[in-house]
């Protein structure tokens, strides 16, 4: 049982514990043999000092314990069915990172802008008479969409001062506003353009009855 490098009592339990045992031993002897206690008895002042020191140490331990973390095994949640993400969860994550305001946020914003531009180009090409190049040009130059916040986000230009001021007072990031308005603009182009075809693809989740579409009639 003993630690071979040291041997004996000290080796097996360590110096501190040995001192503690010596203290206990002398205390026990002092309890029984009055003369021993008298020999050991210390001045009152010294006793007060020891007590105060112990109390202060105790206070330090307690406050340290407040910061100590509890350690335990986590069981996880096996009772729940494994959940799957919603469509677009990746975009949501990217949006959250882009709005976090730390050092990586700018690159997340750039990636998000790319994705939004692609979608906007596709929607514009499908719903307006612009081709893809013209659509991209309109977006990059800030001519589309009309909403200034969305246009600033999609074209990567400075947000107008009015929008900055409003965001400041609403304690909302201008980028959050830009992203929100961008998706609104894209949805507006896709959903509200008065063209019958493909209407059902965009909102059949909400409406069970579908409408005929031009694309399919030729089959």
């Amino acid at each position: 049982m003993a630690d071979r490098s040291r041997g004996g009592l000290v080796g097996s339990i360590g110096w501190i514990a040995t001192i503690g045992l010596v203290l206990i031993g002398s205390g026990a002897i002092a309890l029984v043999v009055g003369e021993f206690a008298a020999a050991l008895s210390v001045p009152e002042v010294f006793l007060s000092l020891v007590g105060a020191f112990a109390a202060i140490q105790g206070l330090r331990y307690v406050s340290a314990a407040r910061r100590a973390d509890r350690v335990r095994t986590s069981f996880g949640d096996p009772e729940r069915r494994k959940t799957v993400p919603a469509p677009g969860a990746q975009i949501d994550e990217e949006t959250a990172s882009a709005l976090r305001g730390d050092r990586g946020a700018a690159s997340h914003r750039r990636r998000l802008r790319e994705r939004f531009r692609e979608l906007a180009v596709a929607a514009l090409a499908a719903r307006t008479d612009r081709d893809e190049a013209a659509a991209l040009d309109a977006i990059e130059s800030g001519r589309w969409p009309d909403d200034p916040a969305a246009a600033a986000f999609l074209s990567n230009r400075r947000f107008p001062i009015a929008i900055r001021a409003r965001s400041f007072f609403r304690r909302q990031s201008v980028h959050a506003l830009g992203i929100e308005r961008s998706i609104e603009a894209i949805e507006a182009v896709w959903d509200d353009t008065p063209r019958e075809s493909d209407r059902e693809t965009s909102s059949s989740r909400l409406r069970s009855q579908t409408q005929p579409s031009q694309e399919d009639t030729r089959e």
Partner: peptide, 15 residues
Amino acid sequence: IGSRFARVDRAIELM
């Protein structure tokens, strides 16, 4: 925002 994005994206792909 992500699910709205995905909705339009999918609709365009179907078209």
